[in-house]
Nucleic acid binder design. Structure first.
Lengths: 331, 331
DNA sequence: CTGTTAGCGCCTTCAC
DNA sequence: GTGAAGGCGCTAACAG
């Protein structure tokens, strides 16, 4: 693989000149510029990133740590973040933590070793040792989606209260009184915020305040199914179910189908925080609060780049959109 | 950030000794070993990856280029590939090409600059200039999911013929004769293979061979919807529809619902190449050929690592599983 | 505007 | 088993 020395030799200039031309420094004559560029093209020269990173003490690489890339929310977010970063000349290294603190720490070590210029973090739970170390260092960090206690990095996330309000309004418009709410873990800020917003708003929207109708899972399908079964076991028969995220809605629906059968299930309307295209074809169709995952990813990258460039970044809540697929709706 | 020099000084040994200890060389005394390790821990030492890469002329980084990370198939594949790579001490850089050759080339440049040790590639279309250059170099490469003309790198992908055969058997068992098939682009090997397997096998499974029932989209929902409409416009009224991938099934279903209404749509059974959990709750439930995306990702990484280590790798077709959700089925 | 050179942090050979 | 030193490819500082 050709080095800058080869390029310089072929162009008949010194390495310094070649370096200046290739990194776009203005201090170069048109003559050497064209000769260096030509030589580089002929040799198929591609700069050695590690060498450049070593010398410049920066890598132009951002680390993105998500809890589970298979979650559509995160895969859309990651996609958008990568696009935004590349538009600014940065590369993104993506890693999963699998909702596991030990894996998260292993990944953070890799990131540290790679000397990433900044970290986009969607935290799993409480602070881990590696994370503490990173926070103590001067590595620029922004939080995505979930906040974490004792960390004051800027947060880019969904407007959970706003999203729940949209769902509540829809429930009221549809005339639902007996609504089951399946939340997520209180230890996740997203779980807590959605839960709190629901409890705070239900009465004003004409929804029964019996807490027998409220339970929580773990934001995964199985946990949500169990929560739904607990509600049914208490003798409640809701006319609508509100799932606090996509997997939760899936689990709740599975529980309802298995316990009550498809026919009875079709009498229950589901609303979901997190939208899925297939909702249009369920019976009845499922309406949903749609997260703007791409915008969260882009805003997070912009904030992080501001931090990297010595500026400041402020937390941002990205608005949700309500997708109404109920019978009477225009769509 | 602490360097190996700091560690050596604190441990009272030479940098060479520190390096040997930290990289697990056996030629170290227990004494210096423990002192170096202690010093490293106290300093929170994490080796500088770029410096190490520069010196060793390898990075322990693999590049993974997929056409669209938002596609669940690829997000699962990427997740598994990353896990497998990490288990072997490698880091994965993930990038999207957005089904766009120019973006793919931009990404390949970044990969080349990062001096990745190997490339996992899910090609979009024909060879691009950058890809040609990479193939000409001695960079180890494996193909994922799709093959590409004129490239003889090992391919790790779905057993398309086997998957189609599973669907055909199911269609026969369900007694369907008038089956619509919505394929993907012939320019993708996956599209061509599924299409060919369907045409070759339909007659033997008692399915009508009228080509008015066959059309192709672009593996995206909109294109598939248009293909479905073309079939309906020809006056055909299938009792079952076979979508050649997940988005295709989505588009076909949308077209059927919009054109015929929900009631008539519920008389048509859908089968899909690519499984989605929500299929269980459609009416009627959708059966599907489930790709083993995680295994494809793992096998690809294993093959690539074999190549990197100077061994050989052979193409592999990963078996599919049929998920039968039809009325009479046990599930 | 250009050439020369030091040195980023690490590994590895070469002596001892 | 250990210390000393060179050099990977690049950029930036310094002369000219």
């Amino acid at each position: 693989m050709a080095t800058i020395k080869d390029v310089a030799a072929r162009a008949g200039v010194a390495v310094g000149t070649a370096s200046r031309v290739l990194s776009g420094s203005p201090q170069t004559s048109p003559d050497s510029r064209s000769r260096v560029l030509a030589a580089a093209a002929e040799l198929g020269y591609i700069a050695n990133g590690p060498a450049r990173s070593l010398r410049r003490a920066r890598t132009d690489v951002l680390g993105l740590l998500v809890s589970d890339i298979r979650n559509p929310f995160f895969s859309e977010l990651a996609h958008a973040a990568e696009q935004e970063a590349r538009a600014h000349g940065y590369t993104v290294i993506l890693a999963n933590a699998n909702e596991d603190a030990a894996q998260a720490d292993a990944v953070l070590d890799v990131f540290a070793s790679q000397r990433i210029d900044g970290l986009l973090l969607s935290p799993q739970g409480p602070k881990t040792p590696r994370l503490e170390a990173l926070l103590a260092s001067d590595l620029p960090i922004v939080l995505l989606n979930r906040s974490i206690e004792g960390v004051d990095a800027p947060l880019y996330g969904t407007d959970n209260a706003g999203g729940v309000a949209q769902a509540l309004k829809w429930l009221q418009r549809r005339g639902h009184r007996d609504v089951a709410f399946i939340g997520g873990p209180e230890t996740f800020s997203t779980g807590a915020e959605r839960h709190d917003a629901y409890l705070a708003g239900r009465e004003a929207h004409g929804i029964c305040t019996d807490d027998a109708l409220v339970d929580a899972g773990d934001f995964l399908a199985d946990g949500a199914a169990e929560a739904m079964l607990r509600i049914l076991d208490r003798g409640a028969l809701p006319t609508a179910v509100f799932g606090a995220n996509g997997q939760t809605t899936l689990g709740a629906m599975r529980a309802v189908h298995e316990r009550l059968g498809a026919e009875a299930a079709s009498l229950i309307e589901f609303v979901s925080f997190d939208d899925v295209e297939w909702f249009a074809f369920m019976s009845p169709p499922v309406s949903a609060v749609k997260n703007d995952a791409p915008e969260i990813g882009r805003a997070g990258v912009r904030g992080l780049l501001a931090l990297i460039n010595g500026g400041t970044a402020t937390s941002q809540r990205i608005a949700t959109t309500f997708i109404d697929r109920s019978a009477g709706s225009a769509a």
